[in-house]
Write a protein that binds this DNA or RNA. Sequence first.
DNA 1: ATAGCCATGTAACCAGTTACATGATTGA
DNA 2: TCAATCATGTAACTGGTTACATGGCTAT
Lengths: 189, 189
Amino acid sequence: MSVKFALLILMDKEPASGYDLAQRFNRGIGQFWQASHQQIYQQLKKMHEQGFVQFTVQKQQGKPDRKVYEITAAGEQDLNEWLAAQEKPPTVRDALLIKIYAASRGDPQRLLNEVQRHIQLHETQLVAHLQEEQQFFSANKTMQRKLRWPYITLRRGIRYEQEWIEWLKEVQICLVDDSLPLKPLRPSL
Amino acid sequence: MSVKFALLILMDKEPASGYDLAQRFNRGIGQFWQASHQQIYQQLKKMHEQGFVQFTVQKQQGKPDRKVYEITAAGEQDLNEWLAAQEKPPTVRDALLIKIYAASRGDPQRLLNEVQRHIQLHETQLVAHLQEEQQFFSANKTMQRKLRWPYITLRRGIRYEQEWIEWLKEVQICLVDDSLPLKPLRPSL
DNA sequence: ATAGCCATGTAACCAGTTACATGATTGA
DNA sequence: TCAATCATGTAACTGGTTACATGGCTAT
């Protein structure tokens, strides 16, 4: 559902083709919502049928034509309604957690490898986020207004990765030392 | 896909009816994978057709019959293969993040309300997790072996909620004070 | 009375994934 | 010559949600 509104937000900032929108999904919004180009084209088609977007065809030589989409008045209204609506926290679905939950079954060594692999994946992502963070600060000493909220959501991404790594390292330790005692995160009642 | 394996894990511990399994999904595994009773019944039916589970009917007076499912040898094998397979980190899809990303559009006050509502939701969840944590420690001073991994995954849930609250409070502050300067999470290169 | 628990399911729908398809240009 | 980028899409499938359906027992 939200792909629709993510697209409307992106093209509201600046009219764009499906291809452009797919690119922009990778940076910024891609951190907390991903969409394949197929899904984007499907969604754009649907929104066009429903009158939320319109497009103009730009001819190019040597390359396929671009359909440059922009939001319509109806689209704006729909977007504003969505922005005003309440959201429920997303449902988490994480297969690795199931495997760790059931760690007493199966081969601990294999799970350890998998956990270490995930630590690396999250560390790579963390580094990428931290590099992106620098770009928000590098240009000028004061951040531009319009970059403020994209940056704040990036901070969430950074913390998210850090928290994953911290916990996965704990899991790693527990897999190595089977009998290490754990203290409750909240020590007293 | 993983609902299937979550069900196999649960019934491997102890044979159970669809109803029981739906209950158990709420505690423990429900924290990182949820399934409605409808989905569970559908999945059980499918797995029975494919020979991964079998059931015996228990008649009850006054209540509908229970189908008590247990895992078959084929099911065990399938489960072991899945446990050995690699997983990719789950794709995050969070509509609230999109709204915060686009916070410069729309009404800041309304977004502030929504952010505060989410802080409360996460705080409620955090308290629930912390209460559950106590149950792991209350009974005996040393934790039982079989509860070790379920507890470790609970720790992840606790940290997850804490991290959310921390970040959402930052967002709250930024919504109130539009020009508060933010320091990078990684200060130096 | 009414709500909640016990216990089962089917049908329709929707969002998102995977596979398939085309075709020119540019750089290694 | 091979891979990558630009640029568009369709079709089939799958996992999960929502709506609908039944019906007795128990506690307030």
